[in-house]
Design a binder for these strands. Structure first.
Length: 768
DNA sequence: GTAAGAAAAATTTTT
DNA sequence: TTTTTCTTAC
């Protein structure tokens, strides 16, 4: 068949597009036209007669899905494109789960718990079990649960898994399995699924209902998966099952850009694709169309340091371009300033703001950058961080909506049962939940019949609870008939949420009002769009199911046109900019200190840096600061080890104001000198005004962290030293010892007595 | 039960 | 620095 658009592809791209006989894996180097292959392949399938509704295309982000859909619409027309099954794993399968919900014991309107809901639930379970939250940290527990779900390990399977149980015992969290079990029960009682459930329950649905599996196997004549290197086991299995019959499947990915293992992504899925699909064809896309030779080669030299990878030769035929400029600055503030200056300079080199991005490892780094850009009047837009739907007032309104659509939603109930304040306090809420657990029902169920469940509250409280319940009941009755906007509108009015946000005229209060209005507007638009599409009345549950999987990245506004982009490296994946600034390239930040334990994690961080560099088309800047303000105090840092992984020939190194020019190998020495200089000036004796001359003193961080090389911060207290404690005052150290790896000191506080303190916890100031 | 204020803790990446 | 938890006074 002669399809002219195929001529826009190179040889390997074209072969990847045209192969539709069976399974295929496209290994796509950075910038090699991966999305192009996917979109053209879908267009090709459509042009060769496949119905849009039988094509399933799974992406990683909503944004990727939307953009691809637009591009396809441009090629085959909007009317055809709209019937494609295209979206993220989570959104596509939540849609399927909703329509088949009854088959796995959920209702059609099940709630989707976001990570905040999960966190809150985990925390309350830990509390209810009376466990020490210093040992059972919610973050750790959450990641364990998530790990289990992503690997399709149910609570029962967890208990039967000796490796997991052993690991938990070794980490001194033997009750992890209990927490997990209760967590699942509670989600079920609340008729709620968390993000991981959307994948886990899809597997359950397919496993327990062969007829449904078959229905979707037949429906999807061709399956495409983007970013396959980031799929986890649950996703892998869903895809495998759906493709089982015909193996009409094409996955695209780049092992060098696998950066989501913390979310369960398993790089083996792509590395061993051929084992799953034995007749699979493999196509390699190696020509990079995005970046200059220098950038491609610099990135290659970096990723070359990773042991785990599919070797490939990514090359560029564009011009050589400029070397990557490395910027060395003293503080994070200066870093912002320098970056802003460079951005201003780029404007004279024919760069628009929208051609430029600033990438960082953590969202918290955005603040300083924002300030610097604002000061210089540079427009920017920021991705991530606190999204619209995570703001308090929005979550409150959404919680009401959630509860109305699904009264069993415990997290929503907890959130608003006393907002605005109606005299139902913590004690009461705890009683209700305790009671609900006793009878294995949802909290709402208890409220519907307090007598039956013997809820032990006094008459006044019972009355308040009953009032609250009937208020929600009234809304719940209307939810299937009223449209979403009218519902939401009367909810915010009747419940007093509006009144609460209108209490004063402070800027904060005004902005909260605006946000609530903004949300109502969004719901209104949602209803209108549905109506324009000729669909029946848009109900509140419909809106909720759309909104729960949206993130801020999904709101691209017109006003965001010509602005510098600020985002984390993770969210930059898949994007490209003419100029890219990678800031905060320091040890303890990038690589993240949480990821330096194992070589595997370290390699992932290196891939992350690889992703960052390969976003750049023409110019790339890398900066590191010698000191950075973090968690309320200034920390010192060394340049990231990853900078040394890039071949020097591609770098434009900073010239330090030193007798000799800094070379890579000298950095550590230089930093050492720099630090010593700073510290000697810092620790100079000083005399406080209107007080007796006191001995110079300095704060000493006493935790014995190993990575810390700063001498003053690492020293423990010698016996005989004098220390000051916030409560006990001044004392003399009698002796120090090690207890379970923690340093303990016996300190004589005079009349307050001799105390034995763990240095890890006690805030001590050493007097010298 | 509430509100305010103090103290302590926690800081990665995202659907 | 920001967020959460604890304390205290009404």
């Amino acid at each position: 068949m002669d399809l002219p658009f195929l001529n826009e592809l190179n040889e390997s791209q074209r072969r990847a597009v045209e192969y539709t006989d069976g399974a295929s894996l496209v290994i796509a180097g950075a910038g090699s036209g991966k999305t192009r292959v996917l979109t053209y392949k879908i267009a090709y399938l459509l042009k060769t007669g496949m119905a849009p509704s039988s094509i399933l295309a799974l992406t990683f982000t909503n944004k990727a899905a939307r953009e691809m859909k637009e591009r396809i619409a441009g090629m085959v027309g909007e009317k055809t494109a709209r019937y494609l099954w295209m979206g993220t794993f989570h959104s596509v399968f939540s849609r399927i789960l909703r329509s088949e919900a009854e088959r796995i014991g959920y209702s059609k309107n099940f709630t989707i718990y976001d990570s905040a809901d999960s966190k809150s639930l985990v925390k309350s379970i830990i509390k209810e079990l009376k466990l020490d939250d210093k040992i059972y940290k919610h973050g750790f527990v959450q990641s364990r649960i998530s790990y289990a779900k992503n690997n399709l390990i149910t609570p029962d399977a967890y208990l039967a898994n000796t490796d997991l149980i052993k690991a938990d015992n070794a980490s001194r969290v033997p009750l992890m399995n209990n927490i997990y079990k209760i967590y699942c029960t509670r989600c079920k009682q609340a008729d709620a699924m968390d993000f991981d459930d959307l994948l886990l329950q899809t597997n359950v649905l397919f496993r327990n209902n062969p007829d449904i599996l078959q229905k979707y196997q037949n429906l999807f004549g061709y399956i495409l998966v983007d970013e396959y290197q980031d799929t986890n086991f649950a996703q892998y299995l869903i895809v495998k099952k759906l493709a089982e019959q015909h193996e009409k499947i094409c996955v695209v990915g780049d092992d060098a850009q696998s950066i989501y293992s913390f979310r369960g992504a398993n790089i083996d899925n792509i590395l061993t694709f051929k084992n799953t699909y034995q007749n699979a064809q493999i196509f390699k896309l190696e020509q990079n169309y995005r970046s200059t030779k220098t950038i491609v080669n610099a990135a290659n030299s970096l990723i070359d340091k990773n042991a785990q990878q599919i070797r490939k030769t990514v090359f560029s035929e564009k011009e050589t371009g400029k070397p990557i400029k490395v910027l060395s600055v003293f503080t994070d503030f200066e870093e912002g300033f320098i970056v802003a200056n460079n951005i201003s300079d780029l404007r004279f080199a024919n760069f628009r703001y929208q051609d430029i991005a600033v990438l960082y490892r953590t969202n918290s780094q955005s603040r300083v950058m924002e300030e610097a850009l604002r000061k210089q009047g540079i427009p920017y837009r920021i991705y991530g961080g606190l999204s619209f739907y995570q703001r308090k007032e929005i979550k409150d309104v959404i919680a009401y909506c959630r509860l109305v659509c699904n009264p069993n939603d415990e997290e929503a109930l907890k959130r608003i049962i006393n907002y605005p304040a109606r005299g139902i306090g913590e004690t009461t809420v705890n009683k209700v939940i305790e009671c609900s657990q006793l009878h294995a029902v949802s909290a709402w169920e208890v409220l519907t019949d307090m007598l039956k469940y013997n809820l032990a509250v006094n008459a006044g409280t019972a009355n308040k609870l009953a009032q609250f319940r009937s208020m929600i009941d009234v809304f719940a009755e209307q939810v299937t008939t009223q449209n979403a906007y009218d519902m939401a509108n009367s909810i915010v009015k009747t419940t007093g949420v509006i009144a609460d946000t209108y209490t004063d005229h402070s800027p904060e209060s005004m902005s909260r009002q605006e946000n609530v209005q903004e949300l109502l507007k969004a719901i209104h638009e949602f209803c209108e769009t549905k109506q324009a599409d000729g669909e029946p009345t848009a109900l509140l549950p419909d809106f909720l199911s759309e909104v729960s999987l949206l993130t801020d990245q999904d709101t691209d506004k017109e006003t965001d046109k010509d602005k510098v982009t600020l985002m984390t490296v993770h969210s930059a994946k898949g994007l490209e900019f003419r100029a890219v600034f990678i800031v905060g390239m320091e040890e303890e930040l990038f690589p993240s200190p949480f990821c330096t334990q194992s070589e595997r994690e370290l390699e992932e961080e290196r891939r992350l840096f690889y992703v960052a560099i390969t976003r750049a088309e023409e110019l790339c800047f890398i900066s590191f600061a010698k000191s950075r303000f973090k968690n309320g105090k200034t920390n010192f840092s060394n340049p990231s080890r990853f900078i040394k992984d890039i071949d020097l020939q591609f770098l434009d190194m900073p010239v330090e104001a030193k007798p000799k020019q800094a070379r890579i190998g000298d950095w550590d020495d230089d930093m050492e000198r720099e630090r010593n200089r700073f510290q000697s000036s810092f620790s100079k004796p000083f005399i406080r005004e209107n007080s007796l001359p006191v001995a110079p003193k300095r704060m000493v961080k006493l935790s014995n962290t190993d990575g810390d090389k700063i001498p003053t911060e690492n020293s423990s207290i010698p016996a005989g030293a004098f220390v000051k404690h916030n409560i006990f005052g001044i004392g003399k150290v009698l002796e120090t010892s090690m207890v379970n790896g923690n340093e303990k000191a016996e300190i004589d506080f005079g009349e307050k007595g001799v105390k034995s303190l763990l240095l890890k916890f006690a805030k001590l100031e050493v007097l010298k």
